[in-house]
Design a protein around this nucleic acid. Sequence first.
DNA 1: TTGCTAAGCGGAGACAGTCTCCGTATTGTT
DNA 2: AACAATACGGAGACTGTCTCCGCTTAGCAA
Lengths: 190, 190
Amino acid sequence: MTAETGRRPMRADARRNYEKLVAAATESFLANGPDASLDDIAKRAGVGPGTLYRHFPNREALLDAVCVRWADSVAADAAPLLEAADPTEALNAWLVRLVAHVSEFKGLAAALLLSSDRKHDTAWVLHHTSDELVERAKAAGGIRADVTTSELMQLTSGISYACGHSKQAGKPTSTPERLIGLIMDGVRTR
Amino acid sequence: MTAETGRRPMRADARRNYEKLVAAATESFLANGPDASLDDIAKRAGVGPGTLYRHFPNREALLDAVCVRWADSVAADAAPLLEAADPTEALNAWLVRLVAHVSEFKGLAAALLLSSDRKHDTAWVLHHTSDELVERAKAAGGIRADVTTSELMQLTSGISYACGHSKQAGKPTSTPERLIGLIMDGVRTR
DNA sequence: TTGCTAAGCGGAGACAGTCTCCGTATTGTT
DNA sequence: AACAATACGGAGACTGTCTCCGCTTAGCAA
């Protein structure tokens, strides 16, 4: 879902507004969570609500546009890990980073992570880079062959969710590293 | 958060309305998810919105009241497992059931599961019964001693969340059983 | 340039949901 | 029977979502 919608290129003012909206939305979602007011985002972007709703028919579409940009930067973060000496540890490190990024992003992407359908490019980008790391670890015999990337993504996004929502009560909740570690323990070949 | 609020017993009409509200809320949350309209719930219960908001200052309080009842019935489900011959497999079975119950309940409880603070009895009840099964499995040497009940609960609620939110795209998402299985693989002594 | 047209804009306003305030009604006690 | 104390409920203020449609502007062609 880039700024080009299908046929002919967007008109200059349309593209300008599109960019302003994504920027305002990013800021606002980060500040106020995924429930931030859309009309308010339009206001921040200096456009009317009608304009927002033409570009993004609903909240999810806007969220997705924001997340895709974020996902690209996260995926870039994986590049060095693809060269790492120990692919299994690289995978572990990646999953930890993934959870950290999702948390940093206030869980905006958590829901999007899960849908591997083509509607959400966010999911696709992250699934794809994860997949490379998984395949590499499998090839090196470091992890079980029967475990799929989707499964790891489900578990990882679940951890992001859980870590993001745990009210820190008396007992400190476990760190993402720890929980990812437990999963890797179940997945590693022995 | 029972129907008794601290000091003296509720007045008869108050208690009656409390019950009607919880019943209507259960029905409505189940039908429309956790975002069901509160005013509508009040209407279904045959009371005014003011009454609803006196009993439950916010959506979460109402959700919690609904979930506590549900949690009690779920916890009851664990009783036979506490007598099972193989405590580790009993734990596994319990976690699977837990995820199933949470899913059945449309994830209403997912958020509540995580907060181990005293505000949410839902969390407490389920944490408590889980704990018994965990301790039993540890005592039998079936699972690692360093894994805590909280950690398992975090992972389990994460799985519930992930399974509940995965848009079923081309590839069928993994079953809860499978994901719980992976976690148990990491947790079992070997 | 100028003029035309498709594309895009934006704000008024209909609608839905949340939550409060306060006059009225009910309960349970003496 | 009378009277606190408690609870009820609906009007309405407020906030957010989303649509409709008359107006504006970009881009193109003459």
